[in-house]
Simulated assay, not measured.
Amino acid sequence: MALNNLRIGARPWAHLTPLGSGVTIGGRAVDFSPLATTPRIWDEPDLDVAETSLSVYVRARAEGDHSITGLPIFVMRGFRQRCILVPADSPLETPADLAGRRVGLTGWPDSGNTWTRELLTNEGVDLDAIEWFLGPLTPDAPQFDRTGGFPVGPNVRTLEVGDGLATALARGQLDAIMTPFMPPGFYTDGSLRTLQRDSQGAEEDYFQQRRYIPGMHLITVKSALLDQQPELAQSLTDAFEAAKVTNARVRNKLQDAFPWHDQELARTAAVFGADWLPYGWPGDQPMVTDFQAALQAQGLLPAPVPDNELFPHPVAPTTSKEYAA
Rank of each mutant, 00 (worst) to 15 (best):
E203L: 10
D110W: 07
P286T: 03
L277M: 13
Q263H: 08
T167S: 12
H15N: 08
A243G: 07
A170M: 03
L54P: 11
E44I: 01
C83N: 14
N4W: 04
P12Q: 01
D275L: 10
L232E: 01
H313G: 00
P230T: 00
P259I: 03
L119M: 10
P286E: 05
E322Q: 13
N113Q: 05
Q81L: 09
N308E: 10
N5W: 09
G100A: 10
V30A: 04
V271H: 08
L98Y: 15
A141H: 13
E93K: 13
Q298G: 11
D163Q: 11
T38L: 14
I8R: 08
E241C: 07
G27V: 04
D205F: 07
P109Y: 11
A88P: 11
T38E: 15
P139D: 15
T246K: 14
T52R: 14
L98N: 13
S223G: 05
D284V: 06
N155V: 02
V271E: 09
D198L: 02
Q292F: 01
A257D: 13
R40Y: 09
D262S: 12
G190C: 10
P302Q: 05
V250L: 10
I84T: 15
C83F: 15
L277D: 12
L3D: 12
D284S: 08
D65K: 01
R101S: 14
L159N: 13
S53W: 06
T94I: 05
S223I: 04
L225A: 01
R197Q: 12
W281F: 03
T24C: 10
A303Y: 04
G20P: 09
P34A: 06
V245E: 02
Q263A: 13
P39W: 05
G27S: 14
T237F: 12
P45M: 01
Q196T: 07
R146Q: 02
D163W: 10
T147F: 07
L310F: 03
P109F: 06
G104A: 09
P304Y: 00
A270Q: 07
L85T: 04
D198C: 04
S191F: 11
P91M: 11
Y279R: 10
Q296I: 02
A168C: 14
V161T: 12
L98T: 10
W42H: 13
T69F: 00
V86G: 05
E160D: 08
G64S: 12
L226Y: 00
A270H: 08
T318H: 12
Q81I: 11
T114F: 14
L174E: 13
P142F: 08
V250F: 10
E131I: 10
T116K: 11
A62R: 15
D284P: 14
A29H: 06
D227H: 11
T188E: 15
T167W: 13
I25F: 03
G149I: 03
Q209A: 06
A233K: 00
L16Q: 07
A141G: 12
L119A: 11
A269V: 02
P154V: 01
S33C: 02
P87G: 05
A224K: 10
T220N: 06
P87H: 06
L19V: 07
D145Y: 03
S90H: 11
Q81P: 09
F144H: 09
